[in-house]
């Protein structure tokens, strides 16, 4: 998976996944593992920072579809931030912006989580 990696950090008590590179049917399992680990550890306040994500295929979107309900069921959310136009366009084509919080900047996601708590 040389063209994709995830860095996990915490910010203001929230879990942040920084995605780097290209997310496709080959690399999607990596994201799936990271999300599952957070959900199993009951850490449902998740920010996915896409600032370094260069590419996404539908298999990548599928991971967000498969886990968002699990996260919301335990009171949390997955908020997506810092997408480039190319990546945002794929989410937009499929109508994700009405179902997911897709925010301009990571700080906006932190504020939104704070206002919802």
């Amino acid at each position: 998976m040389k063209n994709f990696r995830i860095e996990h950090r915490t910010s203001d008590g929230l879990d942040v996944l920084d995605l780097h590179g290209e997310l496709d049917a080959h690399t999607a399992s990596h994201l799936e593992e990271s999300l599952k680990t957070l959900i199993n550890s009951k850490k449902p306040y998740i920010i996915v920072n896409c600032g370094k994500l260069d590419y996404i295929a539908s298999a990548g979107l599928g991971v967000f579809m498969a886990y968002i309900e699990d996260v919301r069921e335990i009171g949390g959310d997955i908020k997506l931030t810092n997408m480039n136009d190319k990546v945002y366009n794929v989410f937009d084509l499929l109508g994700f912006p009405t179902l997911y919080d897709i925010l301009e900047d990571e700080r906006d996601a932190v504020k939104k989580f704070a206002s919802q708590s």
Binding site: G62, V63, M65, A66, E69, D70, G95, F96, L99
Partner: peptide, 10 residues
């Protein structure tokens, strides 16, 4: 997508 998300389908 809304329907699929509810069903946890991708």
């Amino acid at each position: 997508i809304e329907h699929q998300v509810k069903k946890k389908k991708r």
